[in-house]
Amino acid sequence: MSFLAVDHLRKSYPDGWTLSDVAFTLDEGGILALLGPSGCGKTTLLRLIAGLEEPDGGRIRVDGADVTAMPPHRRGFGFMFQEYALFPHRNVFANVAFGLKMARWTDPAIQERVRDVLELVGLTGFERRDVNQLSGGERQRVALARSIAPQPRLVLLDEPLGALDRALRERLLKELPAILKGVGVTTITVTHDQEEAFAIADSVLVMRDGRVVQRGEPEAVYRQPATPWVARFLGLTNLLPGRAVGPGRVETVLGEMCIEGATGEAQDGPALELLIRPEAACLDRAGPNVLSGRIVERYFRGGFCRLIVRHASGVELTFDFAAALPLPAPGEPVVLSLSPAALTVF
Protein backbone atom coordinates (compact mmCIF):
# COMPACT_ATOMS: atom_id res chain seq x y z
CA MET A 1 0.00 0.00 0.00
CA SER A 2 1.26 3.49 -0.80
CA PHE A 3 2.36 5.82 1.98
CA LEU A 4 0.42 8.88 0.89
CA ALA A 5 -2.87 8.63 -0.92
CA VAL A 6 -4.66 11.72 -2.18
CA ASP A 7 -8.12 10.92 -3.31
CA HIS A 8 -10.55 13.12 -5.28
CA LEU A 9 -9.33 16.25 -3.55
CA ARG A 10 -11.39 19.31 -4.41
CA LYS A 11 -11.16 22.94 -3.41
CA SER A 12 -12.82 25.97 -4.90
CA TYR A 13 -12.51 29.65 -4.10
CA PRO A 14 -15.02 32.46 -4.27
CA ASP A 15 -13.16 33.99 -7.21
CA GLY A 16 -14.04 30.94 -9.30
CA TRP A 17 -10.70 29.24 -9.15
CA THR A 18 -10.97 25.51 -8.54
CA LEU A 19 -8.77 22.57 -7.77
CA SER A 20 -10.69 19.67 -9.21
CA ASP A 21 -10.56 16.05 -8.37
CA VAL A 22 -6.89 15.59 -7.75
CA ALA A 23 -5.76 12.06 -7.00
CA PHE A 24 -2.36 10.47 -6.72
CA THR A 25 -0.33 8.22 -4.47
CA LEU A 26 3.22 8.32 -3.27
CA ASP A 27 5.36 5.51 -1.88
CA GLU A 28 7.39 5.79 1.27
CA GLY A 29 10.75 7.44 0.68
CA GLY A 30 9.71 8.78 -2.70
CA ILE A 31 10.29 12.33 -3.86
CA LEU A 32 7.47 13.78 -5.89
CA ALA A 33 7.59 17.10 -7.69
CA LEU A 34 4.41 19.06 -8.35
CA LEU A 35 5.23 20.87 -11.55
CA GLY A 36 3.24 23.53 -13.31
CA PRO A 37 3.01 27.20 -14.12
CA SER A 38 1.96 29.66 -11.46
CA GLY A 39 -1.74 29.49 -10.73
CA CYS A 40 -1.96 25.80 -11.65
CA GLY A 41 -2.84 24.85 -8.08
CA LYS A 42 0.35 23.13 -7.06
CA THR A 43 0.90 25.29 -3.99
CA THR A 44 -2.74 24.95 -3.04
CA LEU A 45 -2.43 21.20 -3.33
CA LEU A 46 0.66 21.28 -1.13
CA ARG A 47 -1.14 23.43 1.45
CA LEU A 48 -4.12 21.07 1.38
CA ILE A 49 -1.83 18.16 2.08
CA ALA A 50 -0.18 20.10 4.90
CA GLY A 51 -3.57 20.95 6.35
CA LEU A 52 -3.07 24.67 5.93
CA GLU A 53 -6.21 24.75 3.81
CA GLU A 54 -9.37 22.75 4.19
CA PRO A 55 -10.54 20.79 1.13
CA ASP A 56 -14.14 20.96 -0.05
CA GLY A 57 -14.09 17.27 -0.75
CA GLY A 58 -11.87 14.25 -1.10
CA ARG A 59 -9.53 12.54 1.29
CA ILE A 60 -5.90 12.50 2.22
CA ARG A 61 -4.54 9.35 3.78
CA VAL A 62 -1.15 8.86 5.28
CA ASP A 63 -0.04 5.36 6.18
CA GLY A 64 -3.61 4.26 5.79
CA ALA A 65 -4.98 6.81 8.26
CA ASP A 66 -7.31 9.55 7.11
CA VAL A 67 -5.77 12.91 7.99
CA THR A 68 -8.14 15.11 5.97
CA ALA A 69 -9.71 16.72 9.01
CA MET A 70 -6.57 16.78 11.12
CA PRO A 71 -5.21 20.25 11.96
CA PRO A 72 -1.74 20.93 10.55
CA HIS A 73 0.10 20.79 13.84
CA ARG A 74 -0.97 17.21 14.48
CA ARG A 75 0.02 15.86 11.08
CA GLY A 76 3.72 15.65 11.76
CA PHE A 77 4.71 16.92 8.33
CA GLY A 78 7.58 19.25 7.59
CA PHE A 79 6.80 22.29 5.48
CA MET A 80 9.32 24.61 3.92
CA PHE A 81 7.86 27.88 2.76
CA GLN A 82 8.62 29.72 -0.42
CA GLU A 83 10.31 32.63 1.35
CA TYR A 84 11.35 30.32 4.17
CA ALA A 85 9.22 32.03 6.86
CA LEU A 86 12.04 31.87 9.36
CA PHE A 87 11.04 33.31 12.72
CA PRO A 88 12.73 36.70 12.71
CA HIS A 89 12.72 36.84 16.48
CA ARG A 90 14.60 33.57 16.94
CA ASN A 91 18.17 32.66 16.12
CA VAL A 92 19.19 29.71 13.97
CA PHE A 93 19.19 27.27 16.84
CA ALA A 94 15.77 28.33 18.09
CA ASN A 95 14.33 28.20 14.60
CA VAL A 96 15.53 24.66 14.05
CA ALA A 97 14.64 23.58 17.56
CA PHE A 98 11.11 24.94 17.33
CA GLY A 99 9.46 21.78 16.09
CA LEU A 100 11.42 19.69 18.57
CA LYS A 101 10.23 21.86 21.42
CA MET A 102 6.68 21.53 20.21
CA ALA A 103 7.15 17.77 20.19
CA ARG A 104 8.49 18.01 23.75
CA TRP A 105 11.93 16.64 23.09
CA THR A 106 14.29 16.86 26.03
CA ASP A 107 16.88 19.60 26.01
CA PRO A 108 19.91 17.38 25.44
CA ALA A 109 18.07 15.56 22.65
CA ILE A 110 17.19 18.89 21.05
CA GLN A 111 20.81 20.05 21.26
CA GLU A 112 21.99 16.91 19.61
CA ARG A 113 19.36 16.82 16.92
CA VAL A 114 19.87 20.49 15.97
CA ARG A 115 23.60 19.91 15.73
CA ASP A 116 23.06 16.87 13.53
CA VAL A 117 20.59 18.56 11.23
CA LEU A 118 22.73 21.67 10.87
CA GLU A 119 25.64 19.43 10.01
CA LEU A 120 23.50 17.69 7.44
CA VAL A 121 22.71 20.96 5.69
CA GLY A 122 26.25 22.22 6.06
CA LEU A 123 25.65 24.89 8.66
CA THR A 124 27.70 23.54 11.53
CA GLY A 125 28.45 26.27 14.05
CA PHE A 126 25.62 28.54 12.92
CA GLU A 127 23.52 27.92 16.02
CA ARG A 128 23.79 31.39 17.55
CA ARG A 129 23.54 33.31 14.30
CA ASP A 130 20.73 35.76 13.73
CA VAL A 131 18.52 34.54 10.90
CA ASN A 132 18.07 38.08 9.64
CA GLN A 133 21.74 38.28 8.85
CA LEU A 134 22.07 35.07 6.88
CA SER A 135 22.57 34.89 3.13
CA GLY A 136 19.84 33.49 0.91
CA GLY A 137 21.41 30.07 0.70
CA GLU A 138 21.96 29.92 4.42
CA ARG A 139 18.37 30.89 5.06
CA GLN A 140 17.24 28.19 2.68
CA ARG A 141 19.26 25.60 4.54
CA VAL A 142 17.98 26.74 7.91
CA ALA A 143 14.46 26.45 6.58
CA LEU A 144 15.19 22.97 5.31
CA ALA A 145 16.88 21.97 8.55
CA ARG A 146 13.91 23.33 10.48
CA SER A 147 11.42 21.34 8.43
CA ILE A 148 13.27 18.03 8.70
CA ALA A 149 14.50 18.36 12.28
CA PRO A 150 11.43 16.87 13.96
CA GLN A 151 11.82 13.78 11.73
CA PRO A 152 8.57 14.37 9.88
CA ARG A 153 6.74 11.58 8.09
CA LEU A 154 6.44 13.74 5.04
CA VAL A 155 8.33 16.84 3.94
CA LEU A 156 6.61 19.45 1.82
CA LEU A 157 8.78 21.97 -0.01
CA ASP A 158 7.24 25.02 -1.65
CA GLU A 159 9.55 26.35 -4.39
CA PRO A 160 12.57 25.46 -2.27
CA LEU A 161 15.12 26.91 -4.66
CA GLY A 162 12.98 29.67 -6.09
CA ALA A 163 14.65 32.62 -4.50
CA LEU A 164 18.27 31.62 -4.97
CA ASP A 165 20.91 32.77 -7.38
CA ARG A 166 21.96 30.47 -10.15
CA ALA A 167 25.25 29.13 -8.76
CA LEU A 168 23.66 28.37 -5.43
CA ARG A 169 20.75 26.76 -7.17
CA GLU A 170 23.01 24.50 -9.16
CA ARG A 171 24.79 23.39 -6.03
CA LEU A 172 21.65 22.87 -4.02
CA LEU A 173 20.03 21.02 -6.89
CA LYS A 174 22.61 18.34 -6.22
CA GLU A 175 22.67 18.63 -2.44
CA LEU A 176 18.94 18.74 -1.79
CA PRO A 177 18.07 15.30 -3.17
CA ALA A 178 21.17 13.92 -1.47
CA ILE A 179 20.04 15.30 1.87
CA LEU A 180 16.47 14.10 1.39
CA LYS A 181 17.57 10.69 0.22
CA GLY A 182 20.07 10.54 3.06
CA VAL A 183 17.26 11.09 5.54
CA GLY A 184 15.05 8.81 3.54
CA VAL A 185 12.01 10.96 4.08
CA THR A 186 9.03 11.01 1.75
CA THR A 187 8.96 14.39 0.06
CA ILE A 188 6.71 16.49 -2.11
CA THR A 189 8.26 19.55 -3.69
CA VAL A 190 6.52 22.27 -5.63
CA THR A 191 8.21 24.03 -8.51
CA HIS A 192 7.52 25.77 -11.76
CA ASP A 193 10.94 24.82 -13.03
CA GLN A 194 11.21 21.47 -14.82
CA GLU A 195 14.97 21.39 -14.38
CA GLU A 196 14.50 21.61 -10.63
CA ALA A 197 11.73 19.02 -10.69
CA PHE A 198 13.76 16.59 -12.78
CA ALA A 199 16.87 17.06 -10.64
CA ILE A 200 15.24 16.58 -7.29
CA ALA A 201 12.30 14.26 -7.77
CA ASP A 202 12.00 10.65 -8.74
CA SER A 203 8.52 11.25 -10.00
CA VAL A 204 6.73 14.27 -11.39
CA LEU A 205 3.11 15.38 -11.31
CA VAL A 206 2.36 17.99 -13.95
CA MET A 207 -0.57 20.26 -13.16
CA ARG A 208 -2.58 22.71 -15.18
CA ASP A 209 -5.58 24.81 -14.14
CA GLY A 210 -6.21 22.83 -11.00
CA ARG A 211 -5.95 19.44 -12.69
CA VAL A 212 -3.32 16.77 -12.92
CA VAL A 213 -2.30 16.36 -16.56
CA GLN A 214 0.54 13.89 -16.28
CA ARG A 215 2.27 11.73 -13.74
CA GLY A 216 5.49 9.84 -14.32
CA GLU A 217 9.18 9.56 -13.83
CA PRO A 218 11.09 12.65 -14.96
CA GLU A 219 12.60 11.01 -17.98
CA ALA A 220 9.34 9.45 -19.09
CA VAL A 221 7.54 12.76 -18.79
CA TYR A 222 10.21 14.45 -20.84
CA ARG A 223 10.32 11.73 -23.41
CA GLN A 224 6.63 11.31 -23.69
CA PRO A 225 4.73 14.43 -22.65
CA ALA A 226 1.08 13.55 -22.29
CA THR A 227 -0.18 16.57 -24.19
CA PRO A 228 1.21 19.31 -26.44
CA TRP A 229 0.63 21.69 -23.52
CA VAL A 230 2.93 19.64 -21.29
CA ALA A 231 5.49 19.60 -24.07
CA ARG A 232 5.33 23.35 -24.44
CA PHE A 233 5.48 23.81 -20.67
CA LEU A 234 8.61 21.65 -20.59
CA GLY A 235 10.17 24.07 -23.04
CA LEU A 236 9.68 21.86 -26.10
CA THR A 237 8.68 24.35 -28.75
CA ASN A 238 9.10 22.32 -31.96
CA LEU A 239 5.46 21.37 -32.36
CA LEU A 240 3.99 21.05 -35.84
CA PRO A 241 0.48 20.21 -37.00
CA GLY A 242 0.42 17.11 -39.12
CA ARG A 243 -1.51 14.11 -40.31
CA ALA A 244 -0.83 10.40 -39.97
CA VAL A 245 -0.28 8.84 -43.33
CA GLY A 246 0.70 5.31 -42.34
CA PRO A 247 2.26 3.35 -39.50
CA GLY A 248 5.10 5.41 -38.14
CA ARG A 249 4.70 8.04 -40.80
CA VAL A 250 3.47 11.60 -40.41
CA GLU A 251 2.87 14.26 -42.99
CA THR A 252 3.85 17.83 -41.97
CA VAL A 253 4.94 21.01 -43.68
CA LEU A 254 8.47 19.65 -43.39
CA GLY A 255 7.50 16.70 -45.52
CA GLU A 256 6.86 13.13 -44.45
CA MET A 257 8.53 12.13 -41.23
CA CYS A 258 9.29 8.70 -39.82
CA ILE A 259 8.74 8.26 -36.16
CA GLU A 260 9.59 5.42 -33.84
CA GLY A 261 6.68 3.56 -32.37
CA ALA A 262 3.13 3.68 -33.48
CA THR A 263 1.21 6.71 -34.63
CA GLY A 264 -1.75 5.04 -33.12
CA GLU A 265 -4.11 3.22 -35.39
CA ALA A 266 -4.12 6.26 -37.60
CA GLN A 267 -3.99 5.30 -41.24
CA ASP A 268 -5.06 8.22 -43.21
CA GLY A 269 -6.54 11.13 -41.67
CA PRO A 270 -6.63 12.21 -38.08
CA ALA A 271 -4.90 15.51 -37.50
CA LEU A 272 -2.17 15.32 -34.89
CA GLU A 273 0.73 17.24 -33.55
CA LEU A 274 4.31 16.29 -34.07
CA LEU A 275 6.91 17.06 -31.42
CA ILE A 276 10.53 17.30 -32.42
CA ARG A 277 12.80 17.31 -29.38
CA PRO A 278 15.64 19.82 -29.63
CA GLU A 279 18.31 17.14 -29.19
CA ALA A 280 16.87 15.18 -32.12
CA ALA A 281 19.09 16.62 -34.85
CA CYS A 282 22.45 15.50 -36.27
CA LEU A 283 24.51 17.47 -38.73
CA ASP A 284 24.29 14.79 -41.45
CA ARG A 285 22.00 13.34 -44.06
CA ALA A 286 21.69 9.88 -42.50
CA GLY A 287 18.36 8.32 -41.60
CA PRO A 288 14.89 8.79 -42.96
CA ASN A 289 14.17 12.34 -41.83
CA VAL A 290 16.36 14.85 -43.61
CA LEU A 291 15.64 18.50 -43.20
CA SER A 292 17.26 21.52 -44.81
CA GLY A 293 17.02 25.13 -43.81
CA ARG A 294 18.96 28.21 -42.88
CA ILE A 295 20.39 29.20 -39.52
CA VAL A 296 18.54 32.18 -38.08
CA GLU A 297 20.10 32.52 -34.65
CA ARG A 298 22.82 30.83 -32.67
CA TYR A 299 22.97 30.97 -28.87
CA PHE A 300 25.92 29.75 -26.89
CA ARG A 301 24.69 28.10 -23.69
CA GLY A 302 27.85 26.85 -22.05
CA GLY A 303 27.74 23.08 -22.47
CA PHE A 304 25.68 23.23 -25.63
CA CYS A 305 24.71 25.48 -28.47
CA ARG A 306 21.19 26.29 -29.53
CA LEU A 307 20.43 26.83 -33.19
CA ILE A 308 17.24 28.33 -34.55
CA VAL A 309 16.69 26.90 -38.01
CA ARG A 310 14.19 28.27 -40.53
CA HIS A 311 12.73 25.74 -42.91
CA ALA A 312 11.76 26.70 -46.41
CA SER A 313 8.10 26.64 -45.29
CA GLY A 314 8.85 29.43 -42.88
CA VAL A 315 8.63 27.22 -39.78
CA GLU A 316 11.31 27.91 -37.22
CA LEU A 317 12.71 24.99 -35.21
CA THR A 318 15.04 24.91 -32.24
CA PHE A 319 17.86 22.37 -31.92
CA ASP A 320 20.59 21.82 -29.36
CA PHE A 321 24.06 20.60 -30.26
CA ALA A 322 27.17 19.83 -28.27
CA ALA A 323 29.18 23.03 -28.11
CA ALA A 324 32.31 21.27 -29.32
CA LEU A 325 30.86 20.57 -32.75
CA PRO A 326 31.77 22.86 -35.66
CA LEU A 327 28.46 24.62 -36.19
CA PRO A 328 27.33 26.82 -39.08
CA ALA A 329 26.97 30.53 -38.42
CA PRO A 330 23.71 32.49 -38.68
CA GLY A 331 22.73 33.04 -42.28
CA GLU A 332 24.38 29.86 -43.52
CA PRO A 333 22.36 26.96 -44.94
CA VAL A 334 22.22 23.71 -43.01
CA VAL A 335 21.11 20.14 -43.56
CA LEU A 336 19.99 18.07 -40.60
CA SER A 337 18.79 14.58 -39.95
CA LEU A 338 16.22 13.93 -37.22
CA SER A 339 16.32 10.75 -35.18
CA PRO A 340 12.95 8.97 -35.29
CA ALA A 341 13.41 8.17 -31.60
CA ALA A 342 13.24 11.88 -30.76
CA LEU A 343 9.95 12.46 -32.54
CA THR A 344 6.60 12.09 -30.81
CA VAL A 345 3.07 12.59 -31.96
CA PHE A 346 0.02 13.51 -29.96
Binding site: A50, G51, H73, R74, G78, A85, M102, P150
Partner: peptide
Protein backbone atom coordinates in the same frame (compact mmCIF):
# COMPACT_ATOMS: atom_id res chain seq x y z
CA UNK B 1 3.24 37.28 7.49
CA UNK B 2 0.72 34.43 7.61
CA UNK B 3 3.47 32.03 6.56
CA UNK B 4 5.19 32.53 9.93
CA UNK B 5 2.13 31.22 11.70
CA UNK B 6 1.74 28.42 9.18
CA UNK B 7 5.37 27.47 9.57
CA UNK B 8 4.87 27.16 13.29
CA UNK B 9 1.71 25.12 12.76
CA UNK B 10 3.41 22.66 10.42
CA UNK B 11 6.16 22.29 12.99
CA UNK B 12 3.60 21.02 15.43
CA UNK B 13 2.54 24.20 17.20
CA UNK B 14 -1.10 24.25 18.26
CA UNK B 15 -2.97 27.53 17.72
CA UNK B 16 -2.18 28.46 21.30
CA UNK B 17 1.50 27.72 20.80
Amino acid sequence: RPSLREAAATLGASPWH
